[in-house]
Each structure stands twice: as C-alpha cells, then as structure tokens.
C-alpha cells in the first residue's frame, strides 16, 4: 500500500469495506461521560502511539483524557460512555501499541484488552501520514476479529503534506470500513459513530482480507493446542491466537499460560488454577 500514488476521494464514504452497509440518517450522539452502568456494546480504541485515540475518546464521551503531541501519554485504559441510536456504548481508550505480537510493558495493557477484553467492536485509529507503519497493527487486529472499524485520522495533516489517501480503496483492500477523520476538528466523528453502530448491531459485517497460511501440519498443531487451551481456560477468546503465539515461542504468553494469569485477562472468566498444558512443540515439527 503506497500513500503517494493513491487518489483522493472527497467523500466520507464507508460503504466500500462493507457490502451490507445500509445507508441511513445519522442518529444523535449523547455523551455519557463516566455514567455507564449498563451497556449494550463495548468499543475498544486501539492504534499506534500518538494517532489521536484519546482525542476521539474525548469527542465521543465528553471526558478529558490527557492528549498532547508526544507518544505514550495514555498508559492505563480509560473508560467512558455514550448513547447512539438507542444503544449504550462503553468506550475504552487504550495506550498506543505498534503490535500485538511483540509488546513493551506499556503495550501489554492494549494487547490484553484487544485480545481478551471481548470488545464488540475494535476501532483502530491510524495516522494517515504514516500509513505504512500504522497498517501493521491494523492487519494484526483484522487477523483476530471481523468487527473492526478503521479511523483514518489526521487527514488534515496528510493534506497539508500533499498526501492523498484513497480511503475507499483502502477499505476495499482491508475488507473493513474506513472513516477519514480529522478528530481534533471533530471531522469524521459522525461517520465514525455510524460505522461503529453498524458493525456493533451487525447491520454491517466486514469481511477482512486475511493472509492464508494453511499448512496441514501447522493446523493440526494449532488444533491440538486450542483444545488444551480451551479446556484450561474455559471461555477464553482467541485461543487460536494464543496457540500460534505458543508455537512461535512467545515467552510472555507462555508465562501467562503457565502461571494461570491468562485466564484473568478475560473479564467473564474467574481466575483459574494453574493449568497443565503440554508444550511439547518439538513433537509437531
């Protein structure tokens, strides 16, 4: 994906990433601040550091999360609420992260919530001026869930630098709705809400483009591990992802499996006693 030779589209269309999106008039946003006892949907705000996640969070909830022009401001997750189209949403602002696969300590908060917090929708806020860098995380998120909306933020900066980003083409290539935004100016916020609502309610069902790495040996190793993981951690989402990380030798995930803390990452599952998962990975080679 090259930013330079893409063609700009003056519209804010999100339909391209989602064939089933009905177009209907935007509903009204009511910011609920921290008042969100019952909610219908949970929305995670993910993205690289310094892409405008907290700016979007503040626009939707009316809260005042710390924002500023340097990376690493948000270090713990913050929660707020809003009402849109008769649905109550809990919005979770996350620390910036470059990856779900290799994480610094700060990034683990975000990784854990994206993978195990069971958000209904994951919004990935990407920096339109640094797409090449930002798409790494977006593609990793699209590998684990269909319910994704891409917020293509900092479009004003992109324009200022003479960059033209073809958001419709991007939506088609990723297989997910893409919403061009300039969040600091409030631009694209309505379109983002609409896209979130459509994906949360199922009115829009993205079909992300995924890398096909079907290898029979790998698949059988993954299936074996998935069974054991699901037995040890009932209700744990993304067991397949966990299995792939174990096969890849990810030490932090291996530790979380061994000491049982993996089970504590899901809010729906009570802490489990340390499970016995057999990590005889040599056997599957």
């Amino acid at each position: 994906m090259s930013v330079d030779n893409a063609v700009t589209q003056p519209t804010t269309s999100i339909a391209a990433g989602c064939a089933t999106c009905p177009m209907y008039n935007g509903a009204q946003l009511t910011r609920l601040g921290i008042n969100m006892t019952d909610w219908d949907f949970v929305v995670a705000l993910a993205g690289n550091p310094n892409t405008g996640k907290s700016t979007v969070f503040n626009a939707l909830t009316g809260l005042r999360q710390h924002t500023g022009n340097w990376p690493g401001k948000t270090v713990v997750r913050a929660e707020g609420g809003f009402l849109y189209g008769d649905k109550r949403y809990k919005l979770v602002d996350l620390p910036g992260t470059y990856s779900l696969l290799s994480t610094s300590v700060d990034e683990e908060v975000a990784r854990d919530f994206i993978l195990f917090g069971q958000p209904t929708v994951t919004v990935v806020i990407v920096d339109a001026t640094r797409l090449e860098r930002n798409l790494n995380l977006a593609l990793q998120v699209l590998e684990i869930t269909d319910r994704v909306v891409i917020g293509l933020n900092l479009m004003d900066e992109a324009k200022r630098h003479g960059l033209q980003v073809d958001d419709r083409r991007l939506a088609r290539d990723l297989g997910a709705p893409v919403v061009p935004m300039a969040a600091r100016q409030g631009e694209g916020v309505q379109a983002l809400l609409k896209a979130i609502h459509e994906v949360a309610t199922g009115a829009c069902a993205p079909r992300p483009r995924r890398i096909n790495h079907r290898d029979p040996q790998l698949e059988s190793a993954v299936a074996q591990l998935v069974r054991q993981i699901e037995f040890a951690f009932p209700g744990l989402p993304n067991a397949r992802w966990v299995a792939l990380r174990l096969l890849d030798g990810d030490e932090s995930i291996e530790r979380a499996v061994r000491d049982g803390t993996l089970g504590q990452l899901t809010q729906t599952v009570a802490p489990q006693p340390a499970p016995t998962i057999h990590l005889e990975l040599e056997a599957v080679n």
Partner: peptide
Amino acid sequence: TGAERRRMMDLG
C-alpha cells in the same frame, strides 16, 4: 532472531 527480531519488525 526470535522475539528480538519480531520486535524490530513491529517497530518498522
């Protein structure tokens, strides 16, 4: 190699 290589790639 391994995790250290992966980290470098994720950092671009």
